[in-house]
């Protein structure tokens, strides 16, 4: 009787402890958002949300606080990272789950996990001393190496573990029967992968890419080190539209990190507003990943 009561007691306590732990993270997210929002309010009120979001000029010394250039910078660098990183990550995922013999998987997978563990400042250093000089070799007027291309390349490697791991999981979760059925019908291995397995794993793959996007949007220190941090709306520097990636830019995260230590008053508030915009962007990206994942299940 007593032991039974004790068991119920422990059950209840544990349940409460677990609930509190779960609620704590929700509370923390809420508190961070509310605090950032509160600090950003003076900027939103004095400058105006619409003006901040649509103005490309950021000169705090002259009371100009447009963050459109930074939104474009963050968007383009993330797009570049997806263009460079997704094929690589998908190739890795398919290779590991469908093609590679076990002993190769045992070597490759830990090394991908190792990539995820490298501090971003180390990626930044690598980008600064290796990638930036490489990019500088592309002949284009005004190309100093610092810019979107170098930053996207660094980001592509940084999001590789996220996309590769989740995609590999999605590919592995495709029921064995699909493979066997396809092969039994006379399809080759590549036909099976491209026509049966990839379509079946598509929702998981898409959400892995979206989660990678979220990671890319939030990256800060490595970006500051290679992107040039100039507050300009990126534009192609030659007649080739792809040369937009040789343009310098600044990310939303970089804007906050570079200037916060000196900012006071409305400037400081505008940096918090930058944070709010980033926060909302990342919430949108992450919830669309959840949405896509759920749609895939149904």
């Amino acid at each position: 009787m007593t032991s039974g009561m004790r068991r119920t007691g422990t059950e209840k306590t544990m349940k409460a402890v677990l609930l509190i732990s779960a609620l704590a993270s929700l509370m923390i997210v809420l508190l961070i958002f509310l605090f950032t929002m509160k600090e950003a309010m003076p900027a939103f009120r004095e400058i105006g949300i619409l003006k901040m979001l649509t103005d490309t000029t950021w000169r705090p010394g002259n009371d100009q606080f447009g963050i459109l250039a930074m939104i474009a910078g963050s968007g383009l660098v993330t797009l570049g990272a997806v263009l460079l990183g997704v094929p690589l990550a998908l190739g890795t995922a398919i290779f590991l789950s469908e093609v590679a013999p076990n002993w190769i998987v045992k070597i490759v997978r830990p090394s991908i996990e190792l990539l995820a563990g490298i501090p971003s400042v180390v990626y930044g250093l690598f980008g600064m001393v290796v990638l930036v000089p490489l990019v500088r070799m592309i002949p284009a007027p005004g190309n100093a190496g610092f810019g979107l291309l170098a930053a996207s390349a660094v980001l592509a490697v940084m999001v590789l573990p996220t996309i590769a791991n989740i995609s590999e999981f999605a590919v592995r979760s495709v029921p064995k029967g699909y493979r066997e059925g396809s092969l039994a019908l006379g399809a080759t291995k590549w036909e099976t992968i491209s026509r049966v397995i990839l379509p079946a794993a598509k929702p998981g793959i898409i959400s892995s890419v979206v989660l990678g996007l979220g990671r890319a949007l939030g990256e800060t220190i490595a970006m500051i080190m290679v992107i040039g941090n100039s507050v300009i709306l990126p534009a192609p520097i030659t007649s080739n539209p792809l040369s937009i990636f040789l343009s310098r830019a600044r990310t939303l995260t970089g804007n906050v990190a570079v200037e916060i230590s000196y900012a006071t008053g409305i400037h400081e508030s505008a940096l918090f507003a930058t944070g709010v915009v980033l926060f909302i962007l990342i919430i949108l990206v992450n919830s669309s990943a959840r949405f896509l994942m759920r749609r895939g299940v149904n």
């Binding site: 100093a144 610092f146 300009i232």
Partner: peptide, 15 residues
Amino acid sequence: ALISAAAILQPSNGA
């Protein structure tokens, strides 16, 4: 005159 917006900006003397 204003410092060009296209300048590469770095956050310290060392950088």
